[in-house]
Amino acid sequence: MKIKDIIDQFIAGDWGEETCSNETSCAVTCVRGADIVPISEYDFSTIPIRYISQQSYSKRCLQVGDIIIEKSGGSPTQSTGRVSFVSQELLDNVGPVVCSNFCTAFRLKKGWNPLYVYYYFQFIYNLGVFFNFEGKTSGLKNLQLEVAFATIPIEDVSLSIQDNIVSILQCLDKKIAINRSINQNLPILDHSSEEVEVHYAA
């Protein structure tokens, strides 16, 4: 199968406005490419609040299981195509979510575990696959989504196998998150304690 075969629909982004008005009265949290890594580390503190129209709100608000993909941006050493998973935890922390204009989101057909597909996208991104599907306009790299999704294969595996793989990867993710939290909270050794240790050793 190809990636395009498992997608039910795409949901366009909306950057909206910085302030509320009669035309843009709906407050949403807007996920940018810059927010993708923090979200993967369960840091939702820097995602901006924007205001969009009621019509856009009804069409573009994302739900649990949707996957956001960065379609514009990147760098010479970093391709476009990074993905973020819309989790219940994300929605509980920040409220209604849309993606920015430099991203798009997609929803999967039945029979596919969204987390399995999310992990698969991380895998192919780390392989550098998306470098092969980029164009450039005005110095900005753009992911040619239709071509990429029509070309990149995905194995048609049963939902039970998908679920088992997700269970294993989620356990690893939790361990990584715990280790990251421990490392961030370790006390920093100050100069005075170093002097004590040196004196004792002498």
Rank of each mutant, 00 (worst) to 15 (best):
S58D: 12
N101S: 14
I49P: 03
P76F: 09
F123C: 02
E41W: 01
C103I: 07
T80N: 11
W112G: 08
F133Y: 15
A34F: 09
L62V: 08
K109S: 13
G65Y: 10
V157S: 05
I124S: 03
G74M: 00
K136I: 14
V83N: 03
Y51S: 05
S160H: 11
I39Y: 02
Y120K: 07
W112E: 06
T151Q: 03
G33C: 09
T46R: 11
S72A: 12
S160W: 05
K71Y: 00
P114K: 05
S167N: 12
F85Y: 15
D35M: 13
V86L: 14
I154R: 00
F85T: 02
V97R: 09
I161M: 04
I47E: 03
C171M: 14
V97F: 15
Y125F: 15
T80H: 01
I69P: 03
S40T: 01
I52D: 06
C99G: 09
Y57F: 15
R32K: 13
P96R: 08
Y118K: 08
C171T: 13
C171L: 15
F106M: 02
N132A: 14
R82N: 07
L115G: 03
D35H: 14
V147F: 11
V83I: 13
G81A: 03
N101V: 09
N126C: 11
Q88P: 03
I47N: 07
I152W: 05
L159V: 12
G73R: 00
Q122E: 11
F133A: 01
I168H: 10
L143I: 11
Q88C: 07
T137I: 13
P96F: 12
S160M: 13
A148G: 01
G111F: 04
Q170V: 14
G135D: 12
F106S: 03
N142W: 02
V37T: 15
S160F: 05
I168G: 01
N142D: 07
T46S: 12
K59T: 10
I154S: 06
G135S: 13
I168S: 11
E70N: 08
Y119I: 05
N113M: 03
E70S: 05
Y118W: 14
A148K: 00
G139D: 00
T77W: 05
E41L: 11
F106L: 09
S56L: 04
P38F: 04
L159F: 14
S53G: 10
Q122C: 09
I69D: 01
Q78I: 07
D43F: 06
V83P: 00
S160A: 15
Q162D: 07
L143K: 04
R60A: 10
D43N: 15
T104G: 07
F85D: 03
R50S: 15
F85G: 06
L115Q: 15
P76G: 01
Y120H: 06
E70H: 06
W112F: 15
I165G: 02
P96H: 12
Q54G: 04
N132V: 00
D35E: 15
Q144R: 13
Q144G: 10
E134V: 08
P96W: 02
L91V: 11
S40W: 00
L140I: 14
V157H: 02
S75L: 03
I69A: 01
N113S: 10
L140A: 02
A105L: 08
D92Y: 06
